[in-house]
């Protein structure tokens, strides 16, 4: 009973945190990635990098090394959009089409598709360094998205971006975290970062129920906890595995320190909000 109440509190905390950041920092990921693009544009033209525009990136990278990809799991508006679309599509499939199981991409091809984001990151970075990226600015689906977030229609020349956004939305309906794990170039940067052991999830496999695997099945990005450490960069710190584990076998050292998962989430969200606002991510700042 108490457990049920606890997980309900955690669920609602998550919803509130994500809504708050969806409204206040909808362009955080594109601001962060803008810094990556500017860095390579500067290098391509042999100019010094403008440090003023790098603070967002330094902050996001530092935060991720310290706390894991909390940004991906809870802050990023595109991730929240993806989860909302997937949930809505699940509702439609179950209630209206009477499907028992929601359609989704099988695990093997999904694991291969996860590499696609590195190719996208590489392409964008090369285009920036060559100085021709601005010719492709109409292709960016997240420019279209940030435009829509402030209730403006994307201007002319954004047809390619609109089409891509619609395709991504369709993908989101059939795969959890479709954009995050397959396409996001910022996610590619994050998954290459080292994350302090303090913020990583450890699985106490010895005391697992035999053949349970609830954590693996519930993971939106196909992580096999405790089996393949190299793949761990994909973890978006969404905590879905920890919420479902019937034996509370998934341990994060940080929550031992505070003894309360909800408190941990709130502290991280507050830290992010303060420093994010300082680096200019808040649209009302």
């Amino acid at each position: 009973m108490n457990n049920k109440k606890n997980s309900m509190i955690k669920d609602w905390t998550e919803i509130i945190i994500r809504l708050l950041f969806f409204i206040t920092m909808p362009a955080a990921f594109s601001s962060g990635f803008l810094a990556v693009k500017l860095m390579f544009t500067a290098i391509g033209s042999a100019e010094p990098i403008n440090l003023d525009s790098m603070w967002v990136l330094i902050f996001l990278v530092g935060f991720t090394i310290l706390f894991g990809r909390f940004f991906c799991g809870f802050i990023c508006a595109f991730g929240t959009l993806g989860d909302a679309v997937y949930a809505a599509s699940g509702f439609v499939q179950r209630k209206l089409l009477k499907r028992k199981k929601q359609l989704s991409i099988p695990e093997k091809p999904a694991m291969i598709l996860q590499k696609l984001k590195y190719i996208i990151l590489f392409l964008i970075v090369v285009l920036c360094a060559l100085g021709v990226y601005s010719n492709f600015s109409g292709w960016s689906p997240w420019d279209v998205f940030s435009r829509l977030m402030i209730f403006r229609l994307p201007g002319e020349g954004y047809l390619a971006g609109c089409v891509l956004l619609i395709l991504i939305l369709i993908g989101m309906a059939f795969q959890k975290r479709f954009f995050c794990q397959f396409l996001c170039p910022m996610g590619a940067v994050f998954s290459l970062l080292p994350i302090l052991p303090f913020s990583r999830i450890h699985r106490n496999q010895d005391s697992c129920i035999k053949g349970c695997n609830a954590c693996k099945k519930n993971c939106p990005v196909h992580i096999k906890l405790g089996e393949n450490m190299l793949h761990d960069g994909e973890c978006i710190s969404c905590e879905k595995c920890r919420m479902i584990c019937p034996k509370k076998n998934l341990i994060k050292p940080e929550s031992k320190l505070f003894r309360n998962d909800t408190l941990c989430l709130l502290i991280k969200a507050a830290l992010f909000f303060v420093f994010g606002t300082l680096t200019g991510l808040c649209r009302f700042g």
Binding site: L192, L193, P194
Partner: peptide, 21 residues
């Protein structure tokens, strides 16, 4: 091991960016 490798690459990237800058 994974984390150590990532840390070393990160330091290398930061180092080369510093030199470049």
């Amino acid at each position: 091991t994974g984390m150590v490798i990532k840390f070393i690459s990160l330091l290398l990237i930061l180092g080369s960016l510093g030199v470049y800058q």
